[in-house]
Design a protein around this nucleic acid. Structure first.
Lengths: 209, 209
DNA sequence: CTTGGTGACTTACGCTGTAAGTATCACCAG
DNA sequence: CTGGTGATACTTACAGCGTAAGTCACCAAG
């Protein structure tokens, strides 16, 4: 059953296929055989282009942030910081199942331009090269934590509020209505503004304590 | 080769064995056969006590925060918040490889007492039931993001600074010395204080903007 | 035409999760 | 003591996994 002429395989096609498969059916559903089938090829052919399955996982994890479009700078560093965080979030949410992989491991080389952009924003805000690193790490940690919550949360669950009240814990009970739902974007923005406010205070000159 | 009398298997022993195996050799090394061997039993016997492998993973993920010891309250809400975050961090770092699992999925029922404690601290700080939820989510996101960075970072790497400088990116280069290393606890504390400062401002009454 | 290299295919091995069936044992009623 | 009864461990079996090793078809250069 010769196909005459066949588009030759290459690393890019393998990685793209893996990404598609993971996004469609989840990481657990990714196997070298299924990936090969997806590409109209036998499993072992993949090994001409990738070292092993971990290599594939690393590669798709990197793609997520390689696709990140860096927003242009303005003269408002807080707006720029927000835009950068938004771009990071958008990149992750564009490939949520793969993003879980990316966020759980070290971010790797494709994230370096993002770091550059973050440091630039913070330098323009007035941080010195060391404080900018601490500030960027704080921001990144917050954004990643938020993203993991968002990606990991299933569909809205009607029974959650009742379950929370049923614990009998007083604070959980009085907040049950708000704990039961999570408007992810609003929640993200709340904490982001909080962190940015705090950074603004730090850079304005720390109030003597 | 009868062993005469044998300690009977139960769910607790299965979960404890799985936790030990994961902490010793990583999640990928966990297989039902190896786990059974660890417990001196055949693989299929495990299924008398757990539904399947995912059940085992869920169970060990829960154990991490079930072991969390809640610190007592004082009259200083910031100190209490710090103590609670510290306890959370300590619980995760006590089982780092398993914590990766716990943090990547929804936190689940064992985390409810932690939520109660967090909401209580924030209520005593002056937040109303709704704002306390937002504040606790911000804090938790930050702490989780920080933990994932810490857990995911390998041993110190001497070549990192040179690699960063080699990118040629100006901000990355001028901060390379500080990007190359990460004192996790100090970094954690920096961001935590930042977030707590911001929360303190919010509760004191937002400065008109 | 020959030759060498590239890359897909084939086979095979040991390992995986788990469905289904069997054997062993502690216990209790008679 | 005997015979059942209900747990729980063991055995077998299967389809699917990652990948090492070997084979074969094609194509460009000599």
């Amino acid at each position: 059953m010769s196909t005459g002429r066949r588009e030759p395989l290459n690393r890019e096609r393998v990685v793209a296929g893996a990404l598609a498969l993971v996004e469609r059916h989840g990481v657990d559903a990714l196997s070298m055989r299924k990936l090969a089938a997806e590409l109209g090829v036998e499993a072992m052919s993949l090994y001409n282009h990738v070292a092993n399955k971990d290599d594939v996982l690393d590669a798709i994890a990197e793609v997520v942030f390689a696709d990140l479009a860096l927003p242009p700078s303005t003269e408002d560093w807080r707006a720029d910081a927000r835009a950068l965080a938004d771009a990071f979030r958008a990149a992750a949410l564009a490939h949520p199942r793969t993003a879980t992989l990316s966020l759980a491991r070290q971010l790797g080389y494709p994230a370096v331009p993002v770091t550059e952009a973050a440091l630039d924003v913070l330098a323009r805000a007035g941080f010195d090269p060391e404080q900018a690193v601490h500030a960027s790490r704080t921001l990144l940690a917050y954004v990643i934590g938020t993203l993991l919550r968002e990606i990991g949360s299933g569909p809205p669950d009607e029974t959650r509020e009742a379950a929370l009240v049923a614990t009998g814990l007083p604070r959980v009970t009085e907040s049950a209505r708000h704990l039961a739902v999570c408007h992810h974007e609003a929640e993200y923005r709340f904490g982001l503004d909080l962190v940015l406010d705090a950074l603004a205070v730090r850079v304005a000159g720390p109030p003597r304590r």
